[in-house]
């Protein structure tokens, strides 16, 4: 087991280096630089421009800048954001709980609906339910997030239509909730404000649906195909030959094996979720890292962007690592093969 973990961790190093390189270079490929954008309409003289760039350390050769970026990472220092003058790491972790809260709700929503739907579709293959579900999931998968978000806002939030849910933010402005954990659902419960939790939950509904739709469609389709394959396996026939109930055959014998595939898919969705969060957070003015990244890119806030990308990528890599370990728990063959 220890060897398995070490091997997996070792493989992360080159991936991580690749991410830092991409994050470092992509933001510098964009036209414009932070000084120009800070200056805005007022033009800045070439001398002053060079002076400011030098003050920020951008006069050094690229390799030197990259090297100090790497050294900074090793010391847990991602630099300071130009616009807020705050350390990037701090900026990130102030906003991160909001994104985590949204992404967690979205993946739970996606799995709670996608998994059972995929299982039922596989068991009742070719039925009306199966065809309907596959049609819906294809639609869900192809739906552009921004458009889907706007549709839901019109339907659920517009006072002319249902008027049920709020449009933006994490909680109604009527409530003042102290930040304890950063997770609004928990903080609102901890606070004495009546109705705060209800408001926080209501604010989460639409963003959760919008962000969870694509993962839900993917989970449903992948669960269905994994289950279809496994229901044809010899050991499922054995389970039937033992006289077990259909529930045990599908829910225990087949599902346990199908989960190996499905967990990978759910793990991969974390990347999709964080990417989707950028759009979703922008639509619903959700103060998370997605919105912060967009703002930082438009300000050419080099340190914030490269630091943010590295942090997000690290989280995705860690989740994938976790998924690898969970395989070992679900599928005993993986651990034994290596030890």
């Amino acid at each position: 087991m220890i060897r398995f973990i070490l091997t997996k961790l070792g493989l992360l190093i080159p991936t991580f280096l690749g991410v830092t390189l991409v994050a470092f270079s992509f933001i510098r490929m964009l036209p414009g630089d932070p000084v120009e954008l800070l200056a805005g309409e007022r033009s800045v003289s070439p001398e002053r421009h060079a002076e400011l760039m030098a003050a920020l350390g951008f006069d050094k050769p690229l390799w030197e800048q990259y090297f100090s970026f790497l050294v900074g990472i090793l010391h847990g220092d991602l630099g300071t954001s130009f616009s807020s003058k705050q350390p990037v790491l701090e900026e990130f972790f102030v906003r991160f709980p909001a994104t985590i809260e949204l992404a967690t709700c979205a993946i739970i929503f996606a799995a709670l609906i996608g998994l059972p739907a995929g299982i039922v579709a596989a068991v009742k293959r070719g039925s009306a339910f199966d065809h309907t579900l596959m049609g819906i999931s294809l639609t869900g998968y192809s739906m552009p997030i921004f458009w889907w978000g706007l549709l839901l806002i019109i339907l659920f939030s517009s006072p002319d239509m249902l008027g049920l849910t709020p449009v933006s933010g994490r909680i109604s402005a009527l409530f003042w909730v102290d930040t304890e954990t950063g997770f609004m659902l928990i903080d609102s419960l901890l606070s004495d404000e009546k109705g705060a939790f209800r408001s926080a939950a209501a604010h989460l509904v639409l963003p959760t649906i919008v962000l969870g739709t694509i993962p839900m469609a993917i989970i449903a389709r992948q669960t269905r195909s994994a289950m279809l394959e496994i229901l044809g396996e010899d050991y499922v026939r054995t389970a039937k030959a033992k006289g077990l109930s259909p529930f045990r055959i599908v829910g225990i014998h087949a599902l346990r094996n199908a989960l190996i595939t499905v967990i990978t898919v759910i793990g991969l969705q974390v990347g999709v979720l964080l990417a989707g969060a950028i759009l979703t957070e922008t639509i619903f003015s959700w103060p998370g890292i997605g919105k912060w990244m967009i703002d930082s890119i438009s300000r050419r806030d080099y340190f914030a962007v490269q630091g943010g990308i590295v942090l997000i990528a690290s989280i995705v890599m860690l989740v994938n690592l976790l998924v690898d370990f969970m395989y070992g728990l679900i599928n005993p063959r993986i651990l034994h093969r290596r030890s």
Binding site: D234, Y235, H253
Partner: peptide, 15 residues
């Protein structure tokens, strides 16, 4: 009860 041809695939690998 019935036993099958392929013992390697007839038992559930996860249990």
């Amino acid at each position: 009860s019935m036993i099958f041809q392929e013992p390697m695939t007839s038992l559930n690998p996860c249990f």
